[in-house]
Design a protein around this nucleic acid. Structure first.
Lengths: 207, 207, 207, 207
DNA sequence: CCATAAACGAGACGGTACGTCTTGTCTTTCT
DNA sequence: AGAAAGACAAGACGTACCGTCTCGTTTATGG
């Protein structure tokens, strides 16, 4: 985050926590109710009982607001579950561990509470490079790292070929799921993600 | 496309071909020059030397215009290359064939002429279900079918396990490339796509 | 009125008469009801059932709108009274004629229908030179000319000294009335205006 | 001035003299530089190096501030000239005395240091009755009283008809000058004010 | 001589209005 | 009847100020 030259940089210590929370809730609620394109800064301000300037003072656009709101939602959910330092379980059975995590991901993607905002943020990020990079860095990347870590651990145990790049390998099951979800190219199911893991680990060619 | 009840349905036979072409070109040019969000119906009309009503008469939104413009662009490119009934080459070497096609895809994705509009349409489609389905059906689906066909042919030749579902299998290399491109999660290169094909065909687990 | 360079100059022939009338009425009503400072462009638009842009397309500010609305009001009143080419009556008795006109003026100044907008326009004109000059040229000046004409006619009849400048002379009774009205420095009454005429014609010094 | 019930009434003895002076200067400077409408409370506070609340604590509006600032300016000028208990000179020649005073008034009205703020206050007073009355009572009225006094003295000396009301008589030359200045209906000059005095004293009718 | 309470600077806040921009509809005129 | 042109009602944009409300920080007695 870089300080802009023209703006006098508001005083963070005097910021209204109450307003911030209200804005987060309003933004998430509106995106869920009327969709991202019909969600307006004006609407968020009105619903949060806040002046528009309070939004523009702290964020640059409705996309920025939604990104922070969604990050906050994730943090709160994680805190509630007491799993802040998170990692993919390592039972020694790579396939089982991955299937379990992907099944949980399917559940999340089907939850409208997460679907609407993250779909909106992904869409915005495709077209707005700055926001896209922030979205990837703050939301996507930390998640992908978990998969890479698990794969490296599997390599150490000899369950994955040593010459495989974990950062590419993880895409074999993560990206298909993401694309199906985002572009609705097929149904999301446990069976589907299980299959992805099997194909990815064992390959398509006959053994 | 379904005829709306309230609208008197304009007479297609009297439609101005010249206007349609000008609108396509203006839409693609603007998306490339100023980006999708700053591309407006008004801007397209002005640039095409066309009345706004002419756009609203034939399309429902700027996304619709862009979708048709982009489809038209693809058709024109295909016609120019004389490859209208297209299929993935089948040399008998599945890995080589897939790598070649994916390399060509990388070239296309890096071409700003294609990048800007298809990125914009994808983004719009994530959030606008109706357009998303149309985008998938008219642009994505036909392409994916080519991969499925090639995989089925490989199955017949015994190069791919018979129990593999080609519709899922193709996602192992297509989706990662799509996600890297759309979300900028990593660089696009021939080396990368070659690796994807190798991983997908041979699997991650040691043989 | 000079055409601005940056603005594309809207097409007057396609202008909506209905909107113009509605805007005039809304502007005059609001100034009368809530006062000039609380009259807003947005309020005028809402009351007139008109988009804000329709106001900004044809006028530069709320003062411009009110000036035209008030001019229109005057024209309509004049037309209704069938006195379009107006002049101060000339019965041969200068004092009587002036007193009659000033009494009518008093009535008008006490009519809230005229008081609110003309007071507002005068105030705006004091501080905004461009509007002030327009206000004077279109509203004040034509009226003052009538007094000058009547005084010149009186000079011809020998009822006013020949060396008197009518343009200055008329100020002796017009300006005091205007100032009393605008600045509330004293009550407006027929007696007062009669006195003004007497003093002005006969002078303060003993004869 | 009546104490408002809801407000805790700040302690005048602890008031910052330095801030008050800075506010006066900032207000007058801004009105002169950018005009009254573009002068804002925020701008005054910023220029004076003062918190906004310090202004709202002691004044009710920017008009109030400007009124006091202008009164203070007048007092300071008067003190500097050592003429605090002021009166119009009485040389025995009424016409000469009035002409001298009006010539001095012309000089003042043409001084931008006075023109901008008093024009602004007059304008505000036209539309804001409360401020208008204060403006008249504190600035205009004391001045008019001086003319009335001089006229009464002239009546005693037999230079003005005994049946003339001085409060009305003075308007014959004061109001025209005020109106020419405020509404720019004609040029201000010594010749003009001399003429006004002559006309007012001797009348327009032939003797 | 310090305690304390008010005024102070700073500026965030909930609001309102600004003047601009774009949307999608409607109307006029030309072809 | 379609098309170019563009006015229109609607409403969101991002900015500027309003007047109120905290925040520490002077500052100025008065106990």
């Amino acid at each position: 985050m870089v300080t802009q030259p023209g703006k006098p940089a508001p005083d963070t210590t005097r910021r209204s926590e109450r307003s911030r929370r209200a804005i987060y809730e309003a933004a998430l609620a509106l995106v869920g109710e009327v969709g991202y394109p019909k969600t307006t800064v004006e609407g968020i301000a009105a619903r949060a009982g806040v002046g528009k300037q309070t939004i523009y003072r702290w964020w640059g656009s409705k996309a920025d607001v939604l990104l922070e709101a969604f990050l906050d939602l994730g943090e709160q959910a994680a805190e509630a579950a007491g799993q802040v330092p998170y990692a993919i379980p390592d039972t020694g059975d790579l396939a089982a561990d991955l299937k379990a995590v992907l099944r949980a991901t399917v559940d999340e993607l089907l939850d409208p509470r997460y679907d609407a905002p993250s779909r909106a943020l992904t869409a915005e990020g495709l077209v707005n490079e700055q926001l896209g990079r922030e979205f990837v860095a703050k939301l996507l990347e930390p998640n992908l790292r978990l998969y890479a870590d698990r794969l490296r651990s599997a390599q150490d145990a000899g369950h994955v070929r040593a010459d495989v790049d974990p950062r590419i390998a993880l895409e074999l099951f993560v990206s298909p799921l993401a694309q199906r979800w985002l572009q609705r190219t097929g149904p999301l199911s446990y069976e589907y993600t299980d299959t992805l893991v099997d194909y990815a680990l064992n390959g398509l060619a006959p053994r």
